[in-house]
Structures are given as C-alpha cells and as structure tokens.
Design a protein around this nucleic acid. Sequence first.
DNA 1: CTCGATCCCTGGACGC
DNA 2: TGCGTCCAGGGATCGA
Length: 302
Amino acid sequence: MPELPEVETVARGLQREVAGRKIVSITLGKTDFIDNPEALERELPGRIILRVERYGKFMLLRLSANHGTNAEHEDSALLVHLGMTGSLAPQAVSVPQRKHTHVVMQLGDGRELRYVDPRRFGRMAYLTGETLLQELQRFGADPLEADLPEFIARIQQRKSRIKALLLDQTVLRGVGNIYADESLWKAKIHPAQLGSRLNRQQVKELYGVLQTILKKAILLRGSSISDFLDADGEPGEYQQHHRVYGREGKPCVRCKTAIRRIIVAGRSSYFCPNCQKAPRGRSKMIAKILRRKKGRKTLKTR
DNA sequence: CTCGATCCCTGGACGC
DNA sequence: TGCGTCCAGGGATCGA
C-alpha cells in the first residue's frame, strides 16, 4: 500500500529512469480510474517527461509544453495515484504485460512505461495550468516540509480523532494507515484521541516521530506489505521495522503488552493499550447518547 | 464540522 | 481441489 515513503521511492526511480524521455504513443485498457481518458490519448503523445515529483501520495510527471497550441505556456502534468495496488514502471517491450495493465506509454528509447493496478483504486489525470494548481491546492502540507507551529495549530483546532487527522490528506498529504499507526505508537498517543485534546508537547512529539519514521522508511525504500515493488522491481525493507502495524496479539516491543487492533475512522488501527492510553472521560458512545437526549429537550429549534 | 455507512475493485486467506 | 465468503484499504460521496 503505497504511502509517502513508497511513492517517494517510486518517484525517485522514475526520475532516474524516464525523466527526459519522450512519450511516443499511449495505449489504454480499462479507464474507469482515469479522469479524462481522451485527454491522455490526445495530449500525451509527443511530450517529454521533464521530471517526476512526489506530491503527497501522488506522483507528478511534469510534461514539456504542448507546442503550437494556445496552452503552450501552461504547466502540464500527469498525476498518478497508485491507490492500493498500483505500480508504474518502465519495461522492455519484450517483457510480457502483466495482468491488469491498464496504461502503456511507449517511450522514445523503445521501452514502455506501464501502469498496472488490479483493484484500480488508483487515479490518473492529465491536468494543466490553473486546473493543475487548484487540484494541488486541495491538499495539506507535506509532513516533511510542514513547519511545527502550523502542524500544532492544524491538529489542535480539530475535534476529529488524531488517527483521522493523520489520514486526512487535506491536513497532511502523504500519510497513510501504516505510518499513522507507527507514529502514534512511537509518540504514545491513542489513535482515538481527539486532536483538540492533545497538548502542545504531544503534538510536537508526534510531528518529530512522524518525520523520523518517514525519513527512515524512505531510506529503506518503503514498506512491502503485499506486493509493493519500487521502480527497479525491488521490495522495500521498512516492514521489518514496523512496531505495531500488522502485529495484533504480538507483544509490544516496549512493554510486552499484546498489540490490539480496533477500527478508528473506519480503518484498522494497531496500538499498544498500555503505552497508548485510551482517551479519558466518558466513552464516546455514552457521550453521544446523552447529548442526543439533551438535544431533544433544549435544542429542538434547529 | 464531523461522523458513520457505502461503494469502488480484486486477490488472498480461510472454512468446509 | 474447489467453491463461497469475508476482508483489506484510499478516497469520494451522501445523509445524519
């Protein structure tokens, strides 16, 4: 499941492998994950991939200008989201196409840049100019670039659970389930804790460990859980460093307590019930019931 | 604003 | 061996 470190790994590999190459032609298979398939077929042939960047969990293939059109001076890019199971990698034409290959870009050097995605949870879009800018502006700060005061403010202003906030791409871009859980464990924060109930020190700690973990994961070329491979076909190694993710029932490496799995924000959340204390006060469910009863009597007006 | 539910999709795990 | 069932999960969307 590609999150920031995995996408960074793939983007770096593609930058090395296909930056400077021309897209000669494009062949599409299933297109239900592509914003506007016709735009890809019409616009990509003849363009040069100038560079490959990561933007949150997206890859941004920056493209050369479309000469001779009125959009000649606009930035243009192919946005690629790998979803759960996507992969984008160059291959020799002689290599047989894998099942679920949905986009094939023939390159000027004779190779093919292939997008494979069994579940098609990914996304692809050709965007230009103002549309491209607007799309990128939807997302929050990059966790490796965000400054601490901004991060603290963003978290403390919100009543959502911290796990939901970490996963919310409009708060931070690039964090997914694995690195959210790993960071919360390291910072000793319960995933169901509300952002607004974290003190300054806790948020600061979380910010620090999040950066540390992401940087280390990038160095190890990400986590290979199911079948993630980088642009060279190599698996990552960070999964060997997971402390809680996927370790339900196994002892916490800090205190030996059995790791638990609960659903927070609709996602599996692994945590140590001893190191990461549950939110204080009434349970969420009881509080909700009480609020509803009160609301009937006093706040019926709205 | 925030929540949960639902849908998208396929492969892998599991039970019989 | 082969079936059916359940589940994983990022993100969009919708109703409460």
